[in-house]
Design a protein around this nucleic acid. Structure first.
Lengths: 162, 162
DNA sequence: TTGAAAATGATATTTGTTTTCATTTAGTTA
DNA sequence: TAACTAAATGAAAACAAATATCATTTTCAA
């Protein structure tokens, strides 16, 4: 680790060490705020920007990737040997991973065709988990009804063929 | 259209009509700001929030989807018959579409296995287009070097197998 | 035509991200 | 080891996009 950093002209500090350690112990998909909270429990003197910057750094050196689920907060997903996709319940926000080996190889082909050098893939299924079906209400434009309550019926009519 | 709206208790207004029309004439992947600019050219009295709200509305009724490329701005992608994925150049921001029929059918299976009701799919390849390769500089943590210049070498080492 | 529900526009608020800057620290190198 | 330079830190400020508020206007069904 230290060696990897050094090779890039980066330094190891006690803060960085802690941040890296906690991040990599974490299961995955952590946000800056969440990691910051964790870190704070261990060392309350560490600043938010330090956590943020190190998370960004981890991405830059290729050990994690930003995952943007589209609800405003960026999550940081540790780069694992096993590529995976995300199933995301738009209602309860549940996040489930799934294997994407087959898909990735298709995508690599696509990238090749288009002369792209792929760096990362994002494969997401947004939908409703088992528990969260059936909310067919209508909403006026002023109503505050967040993503949690998609208007399913009409959405389906206009969706990708299944 | 009017009928679709009515069935949801929504009303048609002149502003809405214009916004819908311009949006659907558009090729795709427009942001709120961009659409707002377009609209302004035609009717300078229309407010930003109106454009924003109607774009959201279009999504709610299933005629478009938010696409979050992860660079801060949400884009609105018209729901077409043909599902498609996005190739995104992290350097020049170029956005290219590709066909995902095969992939979608795999994803539908996955969703089934996990008991998800899929609403939409997001399939992205982030990488560098032909023109934008080769930037292997090192960066310190304080340096402002945005996503445009990923550290390729080490990133690759830790990436999905190709 | 009128009343209730919905939409609008201007503005304010919120929230997450990113920058700034003065200070401290790590890690060479003499 | 001392000293130097580049990098890292923390606090606070700045930024940008998304979303909410609210008074006013408009639609549309009765």
């Amino acid at each position: 680790m230290r060696k990897l950093l050094k090779s890039k002209g980066l330094k190891m500090t006690s803060q960085r060490e802690l941040i890296f350690r906690v991040f990599f112990e974490q299961s995955g998909h952590i946000s800056v705020d969440e990691l910051y909270d964790e870190i704070r429990k261990l060392d309350a003197s560490i600043g938010y920007s330090t956590v943020w910057r190190n998370l960004k750094l981890i991405c830059k050196i290729g050990l994690a990737q930003e995952v943007n689920i589209g609800n405003g907060v960026t999550r940081y997903d540790r780069t694992t040997q096993i590529a995976h996709g995300h199933l995301f319940c738009t209602k309860c926000k549940k996040l489930v991973e799934f294997n994407v080996d087959k898909i990735v190889s298709l995508l690599v082909d696509v990238a090749g065709e288009k002369n792209f050098l792929p760096e990362s893939f994002k494969i997401e299924i947004h939908g409703l988990c088992d528990d969260c079906r059936a909310d067919n209400r209508n909403y006026s434009i002023n109503e505050k009804i967040p993503a949690e309550s998609p208007i399913l019926k009409s959405a389906q009519e206009n969706k990708v063929q299944e």
